[in-house]
Simulated scan of single mutants.
Amino acid sequence: MEIGQVIRKQRKAKGWTLEELAHRVDTDTGNLSRLERGKQGASHELLDRIMKALDIKLAAQGLVEEGTNVGSTLQPTRKHKEYPLISWVQAGDLTESPSNLGAEYEWFPSPENATDIGFWLKVQGDSMTCLGNPSFPAGSLILVRPDSDVINGKYYVVEMLDSGEKTFKQYVEDAGLKYLRPLNTGYRTIEIDGNCRFIGRVIDTKMTGL
């Protein structure tokens, strides 16, 4: 995560406006806005004041110089990057990057790279449950990497354009035709032909509450 995104996320989590943070760290809102958007760096002194005000900790010792990308140092206690758990309604319709969501969301780690706009969803129903591997039972979490290439045999979250319904299925190409296939044979395979939008590819899964 870029430093500006980390600062914006922490500021919003505290419920502070740009004006509030600017007052606390003795700078102006223009500097902070450009810093959060990645358009400007910051001096070590200013960055240190911001990090102290927002309770951001460095992962390792060392100075942060103006213009330095220190995103990799700003997750000190996380072995893996974390992504927010969002609702199916939000999937594909967020107005801002999931990495900027507030503290009211649950965050779960993953060793997989879902980029800065990745997110978790909770599986609904049993259409992707089977006796084989993989199997995605209801209640399990799936990590979605948006804007991924569409590859035969991989798993995707897809929006059906005619109904607006969002679904999780395996993408299959066979004999020139394209399908969305459930792993549970009790559900029907859906033939597609430009009538859906691929929101993202599922690249990780985990069970919770065990």
Results as ranks from 00 to 15, higher is better:
4 G>F: 11
9 K>C: 13
13 A>I: 11
13 A>C: 07
14 K>N: 03
17 T>K: 02
18 L>S: 14
20 E>Q: 14
21 L>E: 11
21 L>V: 00
22 A>N: 11
29 T>Y: 10
30 G>K: 08
34 R>Y: 06
35 L>T: 07
37 R>V: 12
37 R>C: 12
37 R>T: 15
38 G>P: 08
39 K>Y: 13
39 K>C: 00
44 H>R: 10
44 H>C: 00
45 E>R: 08
47 L>A: 13
50 I>K: 06
50 I>H: 00
53 A>N: 00
54 L>M: 07
57 K>W: 11
63 L>R: 15
67 G>T: 06
68 T>D: 14
70 V>C: 15
71 G>R: 05
72 S>N: 13
72 S>A: 12
75 Q>I: 09
77 T>C: 10
80 H>K: 08
82 E>W: 00
83 Y>S: 12
84 P>K: 14
85 L>A: 08
85 L>S: 04
93 D>C: 07
96 E>V: 04
98 P>G: 05
101 L>A: 03
102 G>K: 12
102 G>S: 13
103 A>K: 11
107 W>Y: 12
108 F>I: 07
108 F>T: 02
112 E>A: 10
114 A>W: 07
114 A>E: 12
115 T>W: 02
116 D>A: 12
123 V>E: 03
127 S>F: 05
130 C>L: 03
130 C>Q: 01
133 N>R: 08
133 N>G: 01
137 P>Q: 13
138 A>E: 15
139 G>R: 05
139 G>Q: 01
141 L>R: 03
142 I>V: 12
147 D>F: 01
148 S>Y: 08
150 V>R: 06
151 I>P: 01
154 K>L: 02
158 V>Y: 06
158 V>P: 02
162 D>I: 08
162 D>C: 09
164 G>V: 06
166 K>G: 04
166 K>N: 01
171 Y>C: 10
174 D>G: 00
174 D>A: 14
174 D>W: 08
176 G>R: 02
177 L>Y: 12
177 L>I: 10
177 L>D: 09
179 Y>C: 11
179 Y>S: 07
179 Y>R: 10
181 R>K: 15
183 L>D: 00
186 G>A: 13
189 T>D: 10
189 T>E: 04
190 I>G: 11
193 D>L: 06
196 C>L: 01
196 C>S: 06
198 F>R: 01
200 G>K: 01
202 V>S: 04
204 D>V: 02
206 K>F: 03
208 T>D: 05
210 L>E: 13
